[in-house]
């Protein structure tokens, strides 16, 4: 059970996220939508304590989330990664085991098996020795998906996992989301895609600085709400 109460963030005095509250049951796939600059990435970063928040409480099973970061997997927006970094696919996914492994220790045999399984699951096993800059956009996203899987987290945050990927990768991603859901994990996915995939989500948070609507597809994606969030756009 993830609970967010009154979360607010401002950058140098300018408000980016304004008193947002919601809670999510485990085993749900929740889509976070809203226009560019709506504060979606900011909200997730603040929930994880990656940036400071001016107010708000974030709890996971009644304890502050910040004290249970081991339970969290976070896949940042593509633009935040330096794709020229000298690192291979294998080592990116191996990063997910850093905290489990602990200080001063080498990753265990079991960790290596977990990484191997994750790479196989997303179909990147053959490319494990590639430098990440030598991959296509979709392959890069799959590597980060594998990293999130190998983290074996209970709570997963994805910031725009569907940018730069084709239909096939998108299907793999949703398949994996469903598997994670079936394992009773909580998934929060930022997405811009208001297309046919909407029916895959259990619930939507529509925001623009503040929460505009929260609920099922039919409750949230109404003309009135979209007008409020985007100004004009309606759903295709």
């Amino acid at each position: 059970m993830l609970q967010v109460q009154n979360l607010a963030v401002s950058y140098q005095g300018v408000c980016a996220v304004n008193s947002i509250s919601f809670s999510i049951e485990p085993g749900k796939l929740v889509g976070v939508i809203g226009p560019n600059g709506a504060g979606k990435s900011t909200m997730i970063k603040a929930m994880l304590g990656l940036i400071g928040s001016s107010s708000g409480v974030v709890k996971f099973y009644s304890r502050p989330l910040k004290q249970q970061l081991k339970q969290v997997a976070y896949v940042p927006q593509r633009s935040q990664i330096d794709w020229d970094y000298p690192i291979t696919v294998w080592n990116v996914v191996m990063m997910s085991r850093t905290v489990h492994t602990g200080w001063f220790k080498e990753p265990s045999y079991q960790s290596k098996e977990i990484v191997k399984a994750a790479l196989k699951r997303v179909g990147m096993w053959e490319l494990q020795n590639r430098q990440i800059g030598e991959l296509s956009g979709g392959q890069q996203q799959r590597v980060f998906l594998a990293r999130a899987l190998a983290q074996q987290a209970e709570l997963l945050f994805f910031d725009e996992p569907f940018t730069a990927i084709d239909k096939k990768t998108e299907e793999i991603v949703f398949e994996i989301f469903f598997e994670l859901k079936a394992q009773n994990k909580t998934l929060l996915v930022i997405s811009h895609d208001l297309g046919e995939n909407l029916s895959y989500y259990d619930r939507f948070l529509l925001m623009n600085k503040q929460m505009i609507a929260d609920g099922s597809k039919s409750e949230v994606l109404t003309a009135v709400n979209l007008q409020k969030a985007y100004g004009h756009l309606t759903i295709q």
Binding site: L69, K70, V72, A73, Y74, D82, V99
Partner: peptide, 15 residues
């Protein structure tokens, strides 16, 4: 390695 590659990810996993 984790921190220099993905500082936010490293922070999010509690480093």
């Amino acid at each position: 390695l984790f921190y220099t590659f993905d500082p936010l990810g490293a922070q999010a996993s509690g480093l």
